[in-house]
Structure formats: structure tokens, C-alpha cells
């Protein structure tokens, strides 16, 4: 078990190094001179010279990389020439926004996806099964931004049920400021205000539902397939023969064993959402990490782009690592195999 964990952890180290190298090289791969990219078009020749020596851009690449890494290890990602703000400071608001949205979307996707998949597997070729399969198909075929637009038009525009965009009505709470960046947590724990919390949740609802469609479709599909497979096993028949109630058989005996592929899908999708919510964030004006990347690409703002790429890819690798490690806890057989 310990060797398994160690080996798996060690395998991610070169991956993280490669990611850091790629994010470093990004500055040199973007079109144009790095100093122009960093300072923007208005930079004077003198500014550029000064920056060149300050960043060590005149030094050889390996040395520049070490400088870059020492900055990164201190949590310094440089400055955005678009906003003239420290990237680290901007990320402190952007990253929680994306995590909050991703968690909300994954909660919806997992709850609905797994339930739908289980129901479909219990009654194959029923109406529920058909609904599950259709949803799984349409969910991955929908352009997310189109769905977002339609949902926004309908629920925010026509019916005025939910807010149009953003994370909060700052008109109603002009003094609200979130230290953590997690609005739900701050409304709940710091402000302890139900109305504020409801307003935050109302803003979260539409983007979370729209973002949940793709993971929901994949989770439903995998749950269904995995459950169909498990329900065919001998021990399930034995459990039934022993007189266990249908719900016990399905939920305790079968679902637990069908869990690993489902968990993989949930984790992978969560990893994707951390960096892949660009389109949903754009539609709903959600100031998250995905939006940050696009804003940076738009004006070739190198530092934010480097930091986001580094952050998103590292998070993705770490989520995958945690998933692999969690298998050992879910499935005792994997633990034994390693020990033997």
C-alpha cells in the first residue's frame, strides 16, 4: 500500500516539472518579443531594456527558468500589463470563483448523473433508461454556450426568476467583500446573512446547472454501464436469493462495487471543470480562471497566462493523483494486491 502511494506520488513529480517548464517557455512561444508582451505596446525602449535585465531575459534560458521557478515557489507570478495588478492577487479572487462553480456543478452532475444511471441500470429498456441514454447523448452534443444562452434568456430574461450574470448583486450589498473569494462560505460564515446567501446561491444556480451538463451526461452513462455489469454478478444473485431487499442489493451490494469507474469519471470531470469552464464563465460573466485565461489571450498578457496554465495543469494532475490514491481506500482488494 505504502509503496503504491509512494510510486504514484513520485510519478507526478516529473510531470509537474514538465508543466512548469512548459508554462515558463510559454513566454517565449507567444508571438513577439517577450518584453513587448510583458509591458504591452506602449512600452518605451528604455523600459524594455530595464525589464530585460531585471527579469534576466539576457541570461541563458536554463538560468531564466531557475529564476522563474524561484519566483513561482514564493507565489509570485509577476504583473499583468492589462490591469497593472499582481497576478497572484488577481488569482486569489479568480481561483475561488472557479472552484465554487466547479464544486456546485459537480454536486449537481454527480447527484443527478449517478441516480439516473442507477435507475436506468435497474430497469433496462424502460422509460427511465431511455431518458438516461438520451440525456447522456444530448448532454455531450450540446454546445454549452448555446445552452447557457438559452437558459439565461428563459430563466433570467423572460421569467425573471434568476439573476442574469455575475456572482452577486453588488447594488444590494455594496459593502460586500470576500477575503477568501468563496462567496458562499463568506455569506454563510462571515456575514451570516440568509438574504445574502440566497442572492449568492441564485447567481450560482444557472451557471452551475449549465456547466453540469457534460459531466452529468458522462457520469450517467458510466454509472449505467458499470451498474449493468455489476448487477449481473453472482454475488448479487446470492444477495437477492438470501432475501435482501431490492434497495439494499442495489445500493449496498452493487453500487459500492460499481463505484471505481464512476469515481474516475467524477474526478476527471472535476479536473476538467477547474480549467475548462471558459465558455460557461463567458456567458454568465463569471469572473473565474477560465475567463481570466481568455482575457489574457485576447491581449497576449503573458504573466496571467503562464500562471493560469501552470495552476490549471498542476491542479489537474493532482486531482488525478488523489483519485488513483483513493481507489486503494475504496477497494480493499487493491490494497491487498499491493501488499502481496
Amino acid at each position: 500500500m505504502l509503496t503504491y502511494i509512494l510510486r504514484r506520488v513520485m510519478a507526478t513529480v516529473p510531470m509537474l516539472l514538465a508543466i512548469s517548464l512548459a508554462s515558463f517557455l510559454l513566454l517565449h512561444m507567444l508571438p513577439g518579443d517577450p518584453t513587448t508582451i510583458l509591458l504591452g505596446q506602449r512600452a518605451t525602449a528604455e523600459n524594455k531594456r530595464e525589464l530585460r535585465s531585471r527579469l534576466g531575459l539576457d541570461k541563458p534560458l536554463p538560468e531564466q527558468y531557475l529564476l522563474y521557478m524561484s519566483d513561482v515557489s514564493r507565489g509570485e507570478f509577476g504583473e499583468s500589463h492589462r490591469t497593472n495588478q499582481l497576478v497572484a492577487k488577481e488569482l486569489r479572487q479568480r481561483v475561488p470563483a472557479t472552484i465554487e462553480l466547479a464544486i456546485a456543478a459537480m454536486l449537481i452532475a454527480t447527484l443527478v448523473g449517478v441516480s439516473l444511471g442507477v435507475l436506468a441500470a435497474v430497469k433496462p429498456r424502460s422509460l427511465v433508461d431511455f431518458a438516461c441514454l438520451s440525456m447522456a447523448l444530448v448532454g455531450v452534443s450540446l454546445p454549452v454556450f448555446w445552452l447557457g444562452f438559452l437558459a439565461q434568456k428563459l430563466f433570467a430574461g423572460e421569467m425573471r426568476l434568476l439573476p442574469f450574470s455575475g456572482r452577486l448583486d453588488f447594488g444590494l450589498w455594496p459593502t460586500f467583500s470576500s477575503d477568501t473569494g468563496f462567496y458562499v462560505l463568506d455569506a454563510l460564515l462571515v456575514y451570516r446573512n440568509v438574504e445574502l446567501l440566497l442572492n449568492v446561491l441564485a447567481h450560482l444556480t444557472l451557471p452551475a446547472i449549465v456547466l453540469s451538463t457534460v459531466p452529468m451526461a458522462l457520469i450517467a452513462r458510466i454509472t449505467r454501464a458499470s451498474m449493468l455489469e455489476t448487477l449481473k454478478q453472482d454475488y448479487v444473485r446470492t444477495a437477492r436469493a438470501k432475501g435482501a431487499s431490492p434497495s439494499t442489493v442495489v445500493l449496498k451490494h452493487a453500487l459500492r462495487n460499481a463505484l471505481i469507474p464512476i469515481l474516475t469519471a467524477v474526478a476527471t470531470q472535476f479536473g476538467y471543470l477547474l480549467g475548462g469552464a471558459v465558455l460557461t464563465e463567458t456567458i454568465f460573466g463569471w469572473p473565474g480562471l477560465g475567463r481570466y485565461v481568455i482575457e489574457a489571450i485576447d491581449v497576449l498578457d503573458a504573466r496571467p497566462l503562464q500562471a493560469s496554465v501552470l495552476l490549471i495543469a498542476s491542479a489537474f494532475v493532482l486531482v488525478n493523483l488523489l483519485t488513483d490514491l483513493s481507489y486503494a481506500f475504496i477497494d480493499p482488494r487493491l490494497r491487498k494486491k499491493e501488499a502481496a
Binding site: 479536473g271 480549467g275 475548462g276 497566462l305 496554465v309 490549471i312 495543469a313
Partner: peptide, 10 residues
């Protein structure tokens, strides 16, 4: 290790 859509954006 990069979400593919992000990779395409970059």
C-alpha cells in the same frame, strides 16, 4: 495534463 479545450485556447 492540460484540459484539451484549454490546450486549444493556448
Amino acid at each position: 495534463s492540460f484540459p484539451s479545450f484549454l490546450l486549444a485556447c493556448v
